[in-house]
């Protein structure tokens, strides 16, 4: 019995550790450029923006949103903010885009490009793992890891 329990116990300990590492970098923040005029952003407003329910910020300006390339951070962000899984969110956005109702977020090649776009004022909102943030951006909202 004990001989079979040994590896099981090891797995039981190792798995959450491995997942913990995953989740640690999946802690995600909604950010804007340091010079941006956006002072605050509520969770509900962020949800509406990233679902294309609204296209403008509270101050009336058009919001230019950024998406990360498809991957775990993007999936975790949408699941946390909107409750939709990757397949759902892809089908959802395909409906928004092809009906001409909403402009999809602009996709960046990676975190560095996101930071650059925000710093240059080319976009107003993005989400990033908290670990990669730097002086060029300001955190508006943090989505705690699940």
């Amino acid at each position: 019995m004990s001989s079979s329990r040994g590896p099981l116990l090891a797995w039981a300990l190792a798995l959450p550790l491995a997942l913990g590492i995953q989740f640690a970098w999946a802690d995600i923040a909604l950010v804007t450029g340091r010079q941006s005029s956006i002072q605050e952003l509520g969770r509900e407003e962020a949800t509406q923006l990233y679902l294309g329910h609204r296209a403008t910020l509270a101050n009336g300006q058009a919001a230019v949103l950024i998406d990360l390339p498809p991957g775990p951070v993007r999936d975790a962000f949408y699941l946390d903010l909107t409750g939709k899984n990757p397949a759902q969110i892809r089908a959802y956005w395909s409906r928004q885009v092809f009906t001409g109702r909403a402009l999809p977020p602009r996709q960046a090649n990676g975190a560095e490009e996101v930071l650059r776009w925000l710093a240059e004022g080319q976009a107003s909102l993005a989400y990033l793992p908290t670990g990669v943030l730097d002086q060029r951006v300001r955190v508006l909202l943090t989505l705690p890891s699940p």
């Binding site: 609204r54 296209a55 089908a91 959802y92 395909s94 409906r95 092809f98 009906t99 001409g100 109702r101």
Partner: peptide
Amino acid sequence: SPTLTVRAGRMRVPFFMLSDTQDINYGN
């Protein structure tokens, strides 16, 4: 306004719940 949009031109006629995506089969 942020909540009111007017559109003019050629659109999908929205007779059904899923009219907008009748050609976008990926969405269904």
